[in-house]
Design a protein around this nucleic acid. Structure first.
Length: 803
DNA sequence: AGCACGCCGACT
DNA sequence: GTCGGCGTGCTC
């Protein structure tokens, strides 16, 4: 086995295969599949992942592996298979799939530098560049404006050479420890020999004679009130030695979490957990869907199932939506399992993510709680995978590889023969349909653990408010309830459902709307900078004082941003202390947590925010929840809009009255009769499911069909249309089944982004076993144009949102 | 992707 | 001549 099959870090479809390399003698014993290596590739060097080893190769001009980056494989055998599966399922490149499975810092950094090889005089410019140095970073060439030709000559003459460097981004944090380097009795001898003037040194030695264990330098210095020089003196005398130890950054202080023990389960909880426990005992794979109302104790089921898994010596992955990875959630897991829990989410720094990943990799933890990508945690003995709030769309990755964490979890569950548990108060229609068909095992938790009724929901018809002359964003009912709530010393949460509802600028005279010059979308008004910004390409301009079209000064802001609501609210109820939570106020690290803490400490009466406040928050003093615009996303061109509205309303209602105080919910809408709003107010998931399934059947949408979405983009409008047309034609000639439909070419909902036109076509199918292969074959025909003409083609095998 | 190579037009 | 721009093909 002297040959390695390597996937190289070159994201191009023509490179999407393994390349063979000879394994030099010195790496024979250490190199294993799953390790990262540096290999020569053409004139440069690149990073690669070893997929396997072989004793022969078809290729006869093999090069050698230049270096091995890992001591232990970063990809287990299972993850290598999973990566291949992922790439094929999502029509992505292998390298893209593998990179997605590992923390950022394991990606390579590439650098070029020039080395001076001889003393021979170089052209003047080069001579000044080197200025006595032997190595020069390549970027300096460009900034010095030196032409490539002069260098080329020097290279040909053998005076200069180019090095291609591959650097790992890994940064480990080290802590210095001190320990005795000799036997205790030798230390004692040395202690006698030490001059009496060396008081501090004697003290230190005495300490190590008493306690020879290694100790952190910092602690030592602090304890003895001395400095590094004392230690150095002893090190020089070879009595003590310095040990550098790798230290993990621990973003959470484990000791700070109050330990909890298993709660007694209700009858419903018992019934739900028993089949899961059985799977755990029997090493059996099933997918369970726990449909449990808010407050029915799903988390306790997760915790106790994990307990079983740990007791069996196995590991657990818990996925939670990005947004609800609140301290509250972390506390529940750390509280139960203490330091055996790793946490992975986007708010961690790259270094912190890497450290958490390593704790998993080195088997220091048994549980990982994390967002989507935690589904790739490098456990080798998985006993359960849990996906909380399984309907959340943050489980779908929206760039390559476009995977759904649920699919990956089930794939891993199959290989590990372990259960996958999906939990939600409002399961995705696909999931519930599968449970109905018996593909998943369904468990329903209809009762809340505290036996409290769900808060009452009042629907306010905003049209009659308008007729009654109330033109504000707040219905009279909501205003009254807010005032009462504050007067009682309780708190309220106000949700502005902002999707598709941003603040834009319009001229009242001629109706002109300021749009982005690069994208087909209205610019969004940002008050604090007095700017108009494009949310797709980050173009920005100052707010005009006069209409660019008709020069009128009657320019007004439309739509409803949280900022405007906040202003209106403080006018309406001046005594209210309002806390605003949206992308603007939570951008800074830790801001999210800080705001929530302020609210928990009752420093504000009203928490006003977007989607992000709907999930997972649990404040005991909140008794009123108001939804300002329940239907704002109902009319978006997305087949899931009713489902999303239902989910959001159900979820946000669950925020009220979770504890002793009774809660109340007010939902403002212009379409009170819509079934998603009406049924959400009655907490009737089953009825909603049936209604919505009828709609999906009628319009042929998932779960009745599968979707594949192909999007084409290019600067030239005609090119896009023609290419999409060709793809549609190609697809028609490949599809096999009767019922398969291909829609398009259609302009994408936002037809132009960053000066590129976007068209799409969609395949709706029930059974098309060769579709993936066909799509692959069709788009490969455009490889040349993709490379040379900046054409882009993306495929999404299960688009989650069409906008 | 990134790089070299080679062909072609333009310019000191 | 020779500099530099761009199209083409290759990478174990």
């Amino acid at each position: 086995m002297t040959i390695a099959n390597v996937i190289v870090d070159v994201p191009a479809s023509s490179i999407n295969q393994t390349f063979d390399y000879r394994i030099p003698e010195r790496f024979q014993d250490v190199l294993e599949p799953g390790m990262r290596v540096i290999v020569p590739f053409g004139p440069r060097r690149v990073m690669g992942y070893v997929m396997g080893k072989a004793s022969t190769s078809d290729y006869d001009k093999l090069k050698e592996i230049a270096d091995v980056l890992d001591l232990v494989p970063v990809l287990t055998d299972e993850l290598i298979d999973l990566g291949k599966w992922l790439a094929e399922k999502t029509l992505s490149l292998y390298i893209i799939a593998f990179q997605a499975m590992l923390p950022q810092v394991l990606k390579a950094n590439y650098k070029k530098e020039l080395e001076r090889l001889s003393e021979a005089p170089l052209p003047d410019q080069l001579e000044t560049l080197f200025a006595g140095r032997d190595f020069v970073p390549y970027e300096e060439l460009e900034s010095a404006g030196i032409h490539y030709h002069q260098v080329q000559k020097a290279i040909q003459d053998g005076d200069v050479s180019v090095h291609y460097l591959v650097k790992s981004k890994v940064t480990k944090r080290h802590v210095t420890y001190i320990k005795p380097s000799r036997d205790i009795h030798l230390l004692e001898e040395a202690y006698q020999d030490l001059s009496n003037r060396a008081k501090k040194q004697k003290e230190l030695l005495a300490h190590f004679i008493e306690q020879p264990e290694e100790i952190a330098l910092n602690t030592l210095l602090k304890h003895f009130g001395t400095t590094r020089s004392t230690v150095n003196a002893l090190v020089e005398k070879q009595l003590l030695e310095i040990v550098k130890k790798e230290q993990y950054r621990n973003p959470y202080n484990d000791a700070a979490f109050e330990q909890t023990t298993a709660l007694e389960l209700t009858e419903q909880q018992e019934q739900s957990i028993e089949p899961i426990r059985q799977d755990i005992r029997m090493d059996h794979h099933d997918v369970f869907l726990i449909h449990g109302v808010t407050g029915s104790g799903k988390t306790e089921i997760y915790l106790q199932a994990i307990q079983d898994v740990i007791a069996k010596g196995q590991e657990a992955i818990v996925l939670v939506p990005e947004i609800s990875l609140t301290p509250q959630m972390v506390r529940r897991f750390k509280g139960r399992f203490g330091s055996s829990v790793a946490v992975m989410h986007s708010a961690l720094s790259n270094g912190e993510k890497y450290d958490e990943w390593r704790r998993i990799h080195q088997k220091e933890v048994q549980v990982v709680v994390g967002a989507r990508s935690a589904v790739f945690a490098p456990f080798e003995n998985l006993g359960i995978i849990i996906i909380d709030e399984e309907h959340e769309n943050s489980y779908k990755q929206e760039d390559q590889p476009r995977y759904h964490a649920r699919d990956v979890a089930i794939q891993r569950g199959k290989t590990h023969h372990c259960p996958v548990v999906l939990g939600s108060a409002t399961p995705a229609l696909e999931s519930y349909a599968r449970a109905q068909k018996g593909v998943y095992q369904l468990a329903s938790l209809t009762k809340r653990t505290n036996d409290k009724a769900m808060p009452h929901v009042d629907i306010v018809d905003m049209r009659s408010e308008l007729h009654a002359g109330n033109r504000s964003m707040f219905s009279r009912d909501l205003k009254n309830k807010l005032e009462q709530c504050i007067n009682r010393g309780e708190q309220a949460v106000l949700l502005l459902n902002r999707r598709g509802y941003s603040t834009f600028v319009m001229c009242r005279e001629c109706g002109h709307v300021n749009e982005c010059p690069h994208c087909d979308i209205a610019l969004t008004f940002h008050k604090n900078s007095n700017q108009l910004k494009c949310h797709y390409c980050s173009y920005e301009e100052l707010v005009p004082t006069r209409c660019p079209s008709c020069n009128s000064d009657l320019i007004r802001f439309f739509g409803t941003g949280t900022q405007r609501i906040e202003e209106a609210l403080t006018q309406l109820i001046p005594q209210a202390r309002v806390l605003r939570m949206d992308v603007d106020t939570t951008r800074r690290k830790g801001a999210h947590e800080k705001l929530l803490n302020q609210f928990a400490n009752k420093e504000a009466d009203i928490l006003l925010g977007t989607q992000m406040i709907a999930k997972g928050l649990d404040f005991e003093n909140v008794t009123l929840v108001g939804v300002l615009t329940a239907d704002s996303m109902l009319h978006l061109p997305d087949f899931r809009s009713a489902e999303k509205t239902f989910q959001l309303l159900t979820q946000v209602s669950g925020r009220a009255g979770r504890h002793d105080l009774p809660g109340e919910v007010i939902v403002q809408t212009y379409t009170p009769e819509h079934y998603s709003i009406e049924l959400a107010s009655q907490y009737d998931y089953l009825q909603f499911y049936q209604n919505e399934m009828q709609m999906r059947k009628k319009f042929q949408y998932p779960p009745y069909v599968f979707l594949a979405l192909i999007t084409v983009s290019h600067q030239n409008h005609a090119t896009v249309v023609q290419t999409t047309q060709k793809i549609v034609k190609g697809l028609w000639s490949h599809v096999q089944e009767e019922g398969t439909v291909i829609l398009g070419p259609t302009p994408s909902p936002i037809t132009r982004v960053k000066d590129r036109y976007r068209y799409q076509c969609m395949v709706k199918y029930k059974q098309e076993p060769n579709l993936r292969a066909s799509i692959h074959q069709i788009i490969r025909q455009f490889d040349d144009q993709v490379r040379k003409d900046d054409l882009q083609i993306t495929v999404d095998m299960q688009p989650y949102q069409l906008i």
